[in-house]
């Protein structure tokens, strides 16, 4: 097991290098010049070419892209994420400030979509063909299809502005109750498409499992229906659902960028959009690295999960 994890982690390194390089290249190819964002127009117009070059050199913006990428890589290996081009603050420190909000939002969305998705999916499967199943199936289709930003805007208009059930945006500051109050709506919106996906998958997975012979064996043992459903039908059905959730984790992370902007959530996502707008390479690279790491780690998590849940799977 440990052996496997280590090998898997090592195999991620080339992937990380390629992806971070591509991100670096992407930033480089963005239209416009970083200098436009760092120095006001009128000042920039008065600077001599020598002054501009000196400024660039001071910020580490000179030289060919390849060289700069490897410089960045060297710093990363030393644990240095660099400094924001805008205000010279260390990126690592800024990240630590922004990260908790994003983690909180993503975990809440993950929790909602896992619990709600599995619950509704299983109910839907057990009541197959009845009204509740049909309604849930339609809701699931809408949930999968609707764009998150649209759904977010609808929710803000309805629940925040009209019904005034939830505050509009921002993170709560007045204790746990207030925090949850602020958290619920953005987390729900962030989790909606994942909830719908998990629900649809749980339903089909559960239906498949309930049609298997071992379920009939379980009934033939005289087990009550709830045990048949839970310990036999659901227990087997939950493995593929967990795999799906693992593979969709990156969706939550990328989704949080959109949601944080709509709900003015002070997290990494919003910070990232601002950085992209101003071509703030150190921030873009740090957040990018973080996201890529999460994606790769979640695939490792999926493997471990599968091995734990299914005795037939051996990690090797």
């Amino acid at each position: 097991m440990l052996n496997y994890i280590i090998r898997k982690l090592l195999s991620m390194i080339p992937m990380l290098l390629i992806i971070t390089f591509l991100i670096y290249l992407g930033v480089e190819l963005m239209p416009g010049d970083v200098m436009d964002f760092l120095i006001p127009m009128d000042q920039l117009a008065e600077m001599t070419p020598e002054q501009v070059d000196a400024f660039k050199a001071a910020k580490g913006l000179d030289g060919p892209m390849i060289v700069r990428y490897f410089n960045w890589l060297k710093d990363i290996c030393k644990g240095d994420l660099g400094y924001s081009l805008q205000n010279n603050m260390p990126v690592g420190e800024l990240m630590m400030q922004k990260l908790p909000a994003t983690i909180e939002l993503s975990l809440a969305a993950l929790f909602i979509s896992t619990v709600l998705g599995i619950l509704l999916g299983v109910i839907s499967a057990l009541r197959k063909g009845r009204l509740s199943d049909n309604l849930l199936t339609i809701a699931g289709m809408i949930g999968v299809a609707i764009p998150q930003f649209l759904f977010g805007v609808f929710c803000i208009i309805i629940f925040c502005l009209n019904l005034k059930w939830f505050p509009v945006g921002q993170r709560g500051t007045g204790g746990l109750g207030d925090e949850l109050h602020h958290l619920f709506l953005p987390a729900f919106v962030l989790g909606i498409s994942m909830t719908a996906g998990v629900m649809r998958y749980s339903r089909s997975s559960m239906l498949d499992s309930m049609n298997r012979d071992y379920v009939k064996t379980a009934r033939a043992k005289g087990l009550p229906e709830w045990k048949v459903n839970l310990f036999h039908g659901f227990r087997v059905a939950c493995t593929p659902v967990m795999v799906l959730i693992g593979f969709r984790l990156p969706m939550l992370i990328s989704g949080s960028i959109v949601i944080e902007n709509i709900f003015q959530w002070p997290g990494v996502g919003r910070w990232f959009t601002d950085a992209v707008k101003t071509q703030n390479t150190p921030i873009i690279m740090s957040v990018g690295l973080f996201m890529v790491l999460l994606v790769l780690l979640s695939s490792l998590l999926v493997d471990i999960f599968t091995a734990v849940l299914d005795p037939r799977v051996k990690l090797s």
Binding site: D213, Y214, T217, H232, V236, D310, R312
Partner: peptide, 17 residues
């Protein structure tokens, strides 16, 4: 308890997990 049944395919009649 009183009536037991054995199915045709032992490969699928036992729960794999």
């Amino acid at each position: 308890k009183d009536i037991a049944i054995i199915f045709q395919d032992p490969m699928t009649a036992l729960n794999p997990v």
